[in-house]
């Protein structure tokens, strides 16, 4: 798993040819590596957008309007959960709890935590992306 995480940290995703390389290096079958790769929500088999927004969908954020916030965001960007905008600019993914439940609703934008989100704040953040 650390090998796959390192690959993703370097390349942003794990291409099919890397699965074979990891399997050979660790003396595993391709099926075993594929199994690990597809089990974990974090690991990608395709590149993500230049920016990644992970919106929290868990209960604490729901209690503060996360569902409406998600609808607003997905609608504005024009993608479904897990989708990337046509130009490859932004990927929007669901996440289940960031541990920022006391400042709900929250999200991670390119790895940085943002909280007490409102549709206006999301708009400002997305406008700020190049």
């Amino acid at each position: 798993m650390p090998a796959l995480q390192a690959l993703q940290a370097e390349f942003g995703f794990i291409p099919p040819e890397a699965v074979l390389a990891v399997a050979e290096a660790l003396n595993l079958t391709r099926a075993e590596v594929h199994g690990v790769l597809t089990f974990y929500h974090d690991l990608r088999t395709e590149p993500a957008g230049r920016h990644v927004l992970k919106l929290c969908r868990a209960e604490a954020c729901q209690s503060m309007g996360a569902d409406a916030l998600a609808q607003h965001t997905l609608g504005r960007v024009g993608v479904e959960w897990g989708g990337t905008t046509p130009g490859g600019g932004l990927t929007v993914e669901p996440v289940f709890c960031l541990g920022l439940c006391a400042c709900a609703p929250s999200a991670l934008l390119d790895g940085e935590p943002v909280a007490r989100l409102t549709p206006e704040r999301i708009d400002a953040l997305l406008d700020g992306l190049a």
Binding site: A58, A60, C97, G99, L100, C101
Partner: peptide, 11 residues
């Protein structure tokens, strides 16, 4: 692996 929504003490 503090995954429960509403918890953040470990963090």
């Amino acid at each position: 692996d503090e995954g429960d929504s509403g918890t953040f003490a470990d963090r």
